[in-house]
Design a protein around this nucleic acid. Structure first.
Lengths: 109, 109
DNA sequence: CGTCTTGGTAAGTCATAACTTACGGTAAGT
DNA sequence: ACTTACCGTAAGTTATGACTTACCAAGACG
């Protein structure tokens, strides 16, 4: 499983996506994050571990608290991957559009 | 569940991501797509349905075949969303970096 | 028309991931 | 030392999603 696989798998869950959106406002301790969701704190801990392992968040201890924040490097890497994918996909689309007229005719009802 | 939720959920599965990568080369019929994966054809059909509902692929009939191809509009919408998210996330990071020196000191071992 | 190819869908299986409660380690305060 | 707050992790539960086989409709061709 590649690095991107781990990242996209992490983003595949709605709770984890919401956590990332929440962390855009800045670092937050686990308890605060968990308080924003209708699930248990350990459930949030498990989600945060997935995000950490995917390099989408980083954690630093602050007393008894653990502050989680967005991992800009991990997000940048994912962004690069997505941009590359998008560029390739767009290129493929352009190639398709520029095919001979015959292909176009078939698209006309 | 928002539109982006459906898209990211769709991208959360490795087989579906591989299908998208495969379709970058151009439209392909179901049988051909399925032949590239170590799973059954109906399984691929189910994945393609998820991708179609997420507007990541479009399908057009060609005789008995159904050609699937990337949905550039859906991908563009997802790209827009991701860029917005990334911009917001980067902004949040910049805000964090530009905080008073005290915050920086804490990061020095 | 009969036959073959293609592929969507129904129904069933089961591994797994998202959830829970319980436990205990660490930090901080008294 | 004791107490409180915080949170990672273990262990258990269960809903779900990725898989399967079976069925059948649509299209193509002889």
């Amino acid at each position: 499983m590649t690095y991107q696989d781990v990242s996209f798998a992490a983003l595949g869950d709605p709770t984890r996506r919401q956590i990332l959106l929440l962390l855009r406002k800045g670092p937050a301790p686990v308890g605060t994050i968990a308080g924003r969701f209708p699930v248990s704190r350990p459930a949030i801990s498990q989600h945060l571990k997935v995000l950490k392992d995917a390099h989408l968040v980083v954690v630093r201890p602050a007393g008894t608290r653990r502050l989680y924040e967005l991992d800009s490097r991990g997000l940048a890497a994912l962004r690069t991957f997505f941009e590359q994918f998008w560029t390739d996909a767009l290129q493929a689309f352009k190639t398709e559009v520029e095919r001979p007229t015959q292909a176009r005719r078939r698209r006309t009802p």
